[in-house]
Computed example of a mutant assay.
Amino acid sequence: MTFSTAVTVLRYAAFTSHPGGGNPAGVVLDAAPLSEQQMLAIAAEVGYSETAFVTFGDEKRRRFTLRYFSPLAEVAFCGHATVATAVALAERHGPGELVFDTPAGEINVETTADDDGAVRATLTSVPTRSRPALAAEVDAALSALRWDRADLDAALPPHVAFAGNEHLILAAASRARLADLDYDFEALAGVMRTYGWTTVHLVWRENEDHFHARDPFPVGGVTEDPATGAAAAAFGGYLRTLGLAPTAGVLTIRQGEDMGRPSDLTVEVNPHHTRVRVTGHAVVLSQR
């Protein structure tokens, strides 16, 4: 897509190897001349949950400055747009290490090419943290979601987890509860603004190292994200805090299935470090 400002927006789907899956992201590789208002307007026109803007680049050092905008506001960090941007840069400059300076902090990304040429990216989050959610926070979110406390998995307590942004984590007691998502958009957006959450990360644990997730994102003007790398990193930190990370330290999150855009996120948790690694592919979508 080319806007009247002569800015070209690339379109990628992140956390998938197929254009029909993953989370679409806009990527602007030369956003240095753009104002904040112009970036927000472009993100709104693109209409994806986030568009990433490279506002400075040092190709020799492979270091870039990124800003992220939803259709409604700037966000400090976005995992799927980071993966999309890293893959776009790797396709142009070759795979290898990248460093992104973001409003949330420095993000290191490793890009590699598979045997079939597909590019994957592994981002390392800023230090994560997680705390138990307050009763008032949980009650407000459950009311907007139209869930009851009986719908929650008592073995995975509600937390507010951080990996660049804050996310409320609620674990569903069943896959059916997770699949039946019919929430009050305006009410949940209001709750999230009150408490400063970027998404509500809804999960169901299939087994120790495989989870299913959904992420309502009404504060960004989007009903739901089909893949949320920032929330996946925060969730990894949550499991680390609770001592529930898989023995091998690697888990997978299946997201977007109930939206018809299946996505796969690989999360690596080290019990000795607060930073979490999140891996996924990204593929080009039709540039329209």
Results as ranks from 00 to 15, higher is better:
I107C: 04
T124P: 05
S130V: 08
R129S: 09
D114F: 06
E91G: 15
D101Y: 03
V138C: 13
A113F: 01
S130N: 13
S125M: 07
G79F: 03
E97Y: 08
D58E: 10
D115V: 07
A135T: 12
R120H: 11
N108F: 04
A121T: 02
A84I: 11
V75F: 05
E137C: 12
K60N: 14
A135K: 11
T55V: 14
A104Q: 09
N108L: 11
T82I: 09
T55H: 02
A52Y: 01
K60M: 14
F100G: 08
A76W: 07
L98Y: 03
A52V: 06
R131F: 12
V126T: 07
A86S: 14
A135P: 02
R67D: 07
L89Y: 02
A81P: 05
G79K: 03
G96F: 02
K60Y: 10
H93S: 13
T112G: 13
E97H: 08
H80F: 10
G79L: 05
P103E: 07
A52G: 06
R63G: 10
T128K: 12
A84P: 04
E74M: 12
T128L: 14
T55Q: 11
I107N: 04
T111I: 03
T111R: 02
L66Q: 09
T122G: 01
E59S: 09
F77K: 04
F56L: 15
A90G: 06
P103K: 08
S130F: 06
G105E: 11
K60S: 13
A121R: 00
R62N: 12
L72V: 09
H80I: 02
L98R: 04
K60G: 11
T112N: 11
G105W: 11
D115E: 09
G117Y: 07
E137W: 07
K60F: 12
L72K: 12
V119N: 05
T65Q: 10
A133D: 06
G96H: 09
D139P: 00
C78V: 03
E97C: 05
A81I: 01
V99M: 15
E91I: 08
A52P: 04
E106H: 10
C78K: 02
L66P: 00
V87T: 05
G117E: 07
T112F: 12
R129C: 01
D101S: 13
A118H: 06
V83S: 10
L134N: 00
A88S: 13
D116P: 00
S130R: 09
V54N: 02
